[in-house]
């Protein structure tokens, strides 16, 4: 299903949380809402799901206006950061909850629960109590329960934030897989840019209740519309070249051994990657390369070097690019 948000404003008392927010999500897309905590991501999800009344503006699902429509009739399911599993039910009962509400036949409920448990790799956990489960297992149950509600739109509110890195990556893959297998439309709220870049079809970067840029991972990384967006996704060099400014990511700069006007200032070796700071007539620039490239280059602080901007990688700020 598709989602369209038009000029949404939400305020808690005097504090405005969302400002004239617009967003368009096509059927089957995987979208990440990226931004620091407190930027309004969770508020946006709750407004979409109907847990918060929109101040002004519209939320349209499949072209139908949702204002005044109760949460249970929207077909939007949230998996919250704190998971919110029902403590008085077993894992199986938790997953069956949405089906029990809908009055699905007992037999079908059972089938679906065991199928979903299989999908999240927890086969046989039907009768497990919630407090006997690990964090990762609880995440999986929460996901399975959300899927049992047959969501038209799955909203994930930082559900992996409590997990260690390995488990986090695993859960990310699982979500991506479930998204594909169940043909869902998914919105993932996260503050992890790697996660967003890795899994999304498009990323909406939010700050202060507004969407700064909404674009594909490649475009938002390569053609950020302003410095704030650029720096959110990694470091950036702003190089003056004649009258104009060129924005170059540190990985897009190449150091060449022959050259006179630049000098290596500092080298930081970090194993797989390395950072080299170079003094140029236009100011200091930062280059990043793989550790093995650095070794092949064989440079030391103080060495005279040249700098080359990779073909097609140097870029101007994406002025005039479509914002949404």
């Amino acid at each position: 299903m598709s989602l369209r948000i038009e000029n949404l404003n939400v305020a808690f008392g005097e504090t405005k949380v969302l400002h004239d927010l617009c967003l368009d999500i096509a059927d089957g897309e995987f979208i990440s809402l990226l931004g620091a905590s407190g930027c309004g991501k969770s508020t946006l999800l709750k407004s979409i799901a109907g847990l918060l009344e929109a101040g002004t503006g519209k939320v349209l699902i499949d072209g139908k206006e949702m204002n005044g429509i109760q949460p249970q009739k929207r077909g939007t399911v949230i998996v919250f950061q704190d998971l919110r599993l029902f403590p008085h039910m077993t894992a199986g009962k938790n997953i069956a909850f949405p089906m029990r509400i809908r009055g699905v036949q007992k037999e079908r409920q059972k089938e679906t629960v065991s199928r979903l448990l299989g999908q999240v790799q927890l086969t046989g956990y039907e009768d497990r109590k919630i407090r006997e489960m690990s964090g990762g297992q609880m995440q999986r149950v929460a996901l399975a329960r959300a899927l049992a509600a047959d969501p038209r739109l799955l909203l994930l509110d930082e559900p992996f934030s409590g997990l260690d890195e390995r488990l986090r990556a695993e859960m990310g893959e699982l979500v991506r897989k479930l998204h594909r297998e169940n043909r869902l439309t998914t919105v993932l709220v996260t503050h992890d840019k790697q996660e967003a870049l890795k899994f999304s079809d498009r990323i909406a970067l939010m700050s202060g209740g507004r969407i700064l840029q909404y674009d594909t991972p490649r475009n938002i990384f390569r053609h950020p519309i302003n410095r704030e967006v650029a720096e959110y996704f990694g470091r950036m060099n702003y190089i003056r070249d004649g009258g104009k400014e060129i924005w170059v990511r540190p990985f897009d700069l190449r150091i060449i051994p022959s050259g006179e006007d630049c000098r290596v200032k500092d080298i930081v070796f970090m194993g797989e990657t390395a950072e080299v700071t170079v003094d140029t007539p236009g100011g200091e620039v930062l280059c990043m390369m793989t550790g093995s490239d650095l070794e092949a280059l064989g440079i030391a602080p103080g060495d005279p070097v040249g700098i080359e901007i990779g073909r097609k990688t140097g870029m101007a700020p994406a002025e005039g690019r479509e914002k949404m």
Partner: peptide, 20 residues
Amino acid sequence: RLEEQARVLGASAGQAFFRV
């Protein structure tokens, strides 16, 4: 919190209270 979760899983306000 739990009632909010129940609501988005399809429960009415009453169901959310009585079942959760």
